[in-house]
Simulated scan of single mutants.
Amino acid sequence: MSQASARDHQPSPVVVRQAIEWMMRLNNHAASPRMRQRCEQWRVAHPDHECAWQRVVAMNADLHSRFQALPAGGAVFDALENSAQRLGRRQALKLLSGVLVVGASAYLARDVLPWQQWSADFSTGVGERRGIVLTDGTRLRLNTDTAVDQDFSPTQRLIRLNKGEILVRCGADAQSATSRPLLVSCRHGVFEGQSARFVVRQESDHTRLSVTEGSVLIRSPGEGSVTVQAGQSYSVNGQRVERIPQLDMDPGAWADGLIVTRNMRLGDFLAEVSRYRHGYLGCTQDIADLRLSGVFRLEDTDKLLAMLPQTLPVQLKYRTRWWVTLQRNA
């Protein structure tokens, strides 16, 4: 497909994202002939692939030139707005993240996708959720801002949680007569499930495991092995494994697009909602300890926030669409 026809054609957002991911992989594996060959195979597999590739290459060059001339961080948003008219806001933001990663700038560091997600086998952006069925039949759900790798061998099935949160539904090994264990590894430990449904959420200083069906074995360097039964949650930090007596939020409701709270602090609730949107979301200190219970839908976080003044003595203050603060009613 010629470059002119590539500009006229509109590839799907999914294909555009694939093209961006290939560009990021090539930047990370510049000396790998195998990676370049795989990219070439992807480009020729369908005309839309080459079309998306041409657009991403052109956009990357355009953004590079823009960043070189930027006098201040605020101008980044102007470049993003102009680029979004061609790729769409989500795709432009992801492409912007790639340019930043390869050295243009550190602007918007909180909101851009880190390099882990471009190189991961499976990933999601901020506010995105994704379902995957692995080759052995295991069902995997990725929550917002998550990166996962898989490593299946003749002796084990391994899922690496690099960042974020996943829900795993695993059963008998459909590919091996030896019944390979399913392992989920993260920064703080390893979890083994045979026939179970469980949620693994990795934070900076600990990882939380919540089992909703079956049982899961925790392998911790500090405390050996601990079996977690359905209905139980544990915190693992690499040295200690501790039972969490009660959660103030349903640990797996996000898989259905919900936040389900039980007497949750408003400050903690806003921290949870902020995982699904770009920018700053917070509240003044005098209302952070207000409590709320309910079911909230994640598909539109602005609508979700608009519900809070109906049940709590608070009001929303939007400085921009990316900077929202809750404060007490006057």
Rank of each mutant, 00 (worst) to 15 (best):
R277H: 07
E272D: 08
L266F: 03
L290S: 10
H278G: 00
M307K: 15
Q285N: 13
D250G: 07
D300N: 07
R297M: 12
D300K: 06
G294F: 05
V273N: 04
D300E: 03
P245N: 08
D256E: 14
K303N: 05
P251F: 02
W254Y: 07
L308D: 04
V273Y: 04
M264E: 04
L258G: 09
P309M: 02
D286Y: 06
R240Y: 06
Q310S: 13
G257I: 04
Q246C: 10
A255P: 02
M307H: 10
M264G: 04
E242N: 14
P245G: 06
N263S: 14
F269G: 01
Y280A: 11
E242P: 13
F296D: 10
D300I: 05
Q315H: 14
A255K: 09
Q310E: 13
Q310C: 11
Q315E: 15
T284G: 08
L266A: 00
L270F: 03
T261W: 01
Q310I: 11
R240D: 12
W254H: 06
T261I: 08
L258W: 13
L281H: 09
R297G: 14
M249I: 10
L258I: 12
P313L: 01
Q310A: 13
P245V: 08
T301F: 01
L247A: 03
Q310D: 12
M249F: 05
G257Y: 05
R275A: 07
R291T: 06
A288R: 06
P251T: 02
L290A: 09
L292P: 13
G294W: 00
P309I: 03
Q246P: 00
F296C: 10
P313N: 02
M264R: 04
T284A: 09
I287C: 02
G252N: 13
L312D: 03
H278I: 12
I287R: 03
T301Q: 07
I287S: 01
Q285A: 13
V273R: 00
V241G: 08
E242W: 11
N263T: 05
L304K: 07
L312C: 05
D302V: 09
S274R: 12
R240P: 10
Y280I: 13
D268Y: 04
R265C: 05
A271L: 15
Q246E: 08
G279E: 02
R275T: 05
Q315R: 15
L270Y: 00
G257E: 07
R291P: 00
P313G: 02
T261H: 02
D250M: 09
A271C: 14
W254C: 10
Q310M: 12
A288F: 02
L312T: 01
R297V: 15
D289Q: 12
L308A: 11
